[in-house]
Amino acid sequence: MLDLNNTSINPLVFILVGFPGLEAFHIWISLPFCAMFAIAVSGNVMLLLTIKTEQSLHKPMFFFLSMLAATDFIISVTIMPKMLSLFWFNSSEIVRDLCLLQMFFIHTFTCMESGVLVAMAFDRYVAICNPLRYAIVLTHMLVTKLGLLAFFRSLILVIPFPVLAKRLLFCDRNVISHTYCDHMAVVRLACVDFTVNSMYVLIVAVSTGALDILFIALSYTSILRAVLRLPSKEAQHKAFSTCTAHILVILVFYTPCLFSTLTYRYGHHVPPNFQILMSNLYLLLPPMFNPLVYGIKAKLLRQRVLSMFSKKWVVSEDYT
């Protein structure tokens, strides 16, 4: 029989290492991450406030964009405070239940972001392929239902992650070679077989990422056919330009995700720190990049943001 108490089998505290072997450089490593965090939080808060306060932006495309911004904000504030405390103050300990909670939030909202990107692809499909029916098809009720569907799908699929992780035995292994509580980084510490966890991760990856990419590809195939049938080059260019921001956001989200997944599964000879870097970029690049892309590409949104700043500037000038 095992002569171990419950605490030794399942440690109450995990230790986050950050970038193994680069602890002396954590302060310098933190600088770009801190900048990304600041841009992500300020950019997404600005998007949410602008869309909420400007009546002219109360349209399906901007409602989906506000869902994306809220999702990105939650992901940023879930991962970065603990990471920065690790880099700046060497605060590496995280209580097991908080670690599992962080894992739950990270995977729930990254899964939801994928669902929102599918909904945005559907929005672009209707806008270009059936423009006359856009207002009829994409009602406020349908937009709300699509947002709730993305959320509850993520919730149902991700709840088993912390549940399955909590049932594992970790013995005295509690050092996580990562900057946050990634599911597989935690599960690999187990001193028992974790095949069920690995298989479930694969099922979720296929049922979300693979299917979502397929739906997006089908939407843009139809969009491409519709655009190429337009009579003039100017009309084609205008139609393509309405999709540019969304395509860029898709690439920024799925490219690091694909690299991170492949290096975890098959990159046995890939340096661990590169795997950790890709996992971080997968979570931190989209929240930083998305508000910048839509702030530049969405003309109406850009005008409203600039007008808000110009009003504040005029008010400040009046008081000087």
Rank of each mutant, 00 (worst) to 15 (best):
L277Q: 03
C34H: 05
N273I: 01
M278P: 00
H26R: 05
T108M: 14
S85T: 12
Y134G: 10
Y200Q: 07
F122Y: 15
A69L: 12
V17I: 08
L57G: 10
F274P: 01
R167I: 12
C257F: 05
L169D: 09
G147Q: 04
K233V: 14
L138P: 04
A70D: 03
V305S: 00
L48R: 09
G267M: 01
C171V: 05
P287F: 05
S154D: 04
Y200V: 01
R167T: 09
S30R: 05
F240T: 02
L285W: 06
R173H: 14
K311W: 13
M83P: 01
Y266R: 01
E317D: 14
A24T: 12
Y220I: 12
L284S: 12
S310N: 14
M80D: 05
R153Y: 10
L157V: 12
N197S: 13
S91L: 13
L202S: 09
F259L: 09
H107I: 00
R96C: 05
R153W: 09
N273L: 00
P256A: 04
L168M: 13
H183E: 01
W313Y: 13
L57F: 04
W313F: 12
E23A: 07
C191T: 10
P231Y: 04
Q303S: 14
Y200G: 03
K311L: 15
T108K: 04
K145Q: 13
L84T: 04
R229H: 12
A69N: 07
F170S: 01
S207M: 14
D172H: 05
F14C: 07
T221F: 14
M120D: 03
L251W: 06
L202M: 11
S56F: 11
N6L: 10
D318L: 10
F89N: 13
V227F: 07
P272D: 11
A210W: 08
L306Q: 15
Y319I: 15
H183L: 06
N44C: 11
P131H: 14
V143G: 08
A185F: 04
S222I: 00
F170E: 00
Y180A: 10
A119H: 02
I79Y: 02
P20K: 07
F104R: 01
S232T: 15
L65A: 06
V187F: 07
Q275P: 00
R265Y: 01
K312S: 15
R304G: 01
I156D: 02
M278C: 03
C99W: 00
D212G: 08
V95G: 08
N280C: 11
A119W: 00
A210P: 00
F170L: 08
V249T: 06
W88G: 03
I213Q: 08
F19E: 07
I94S: 07
F109N: 02
T221N: 12
L4E: 08
I51A: 02
A69Y: 05
I203G: 09
C257Q: 02
D172I: 00
I9Q: 15
F240K: 04
N10Q: 12
F63T: 13
H269I: 02
L189R: 03
A235M: 13
G18W: 02
F253T: 08
A24Y: 08
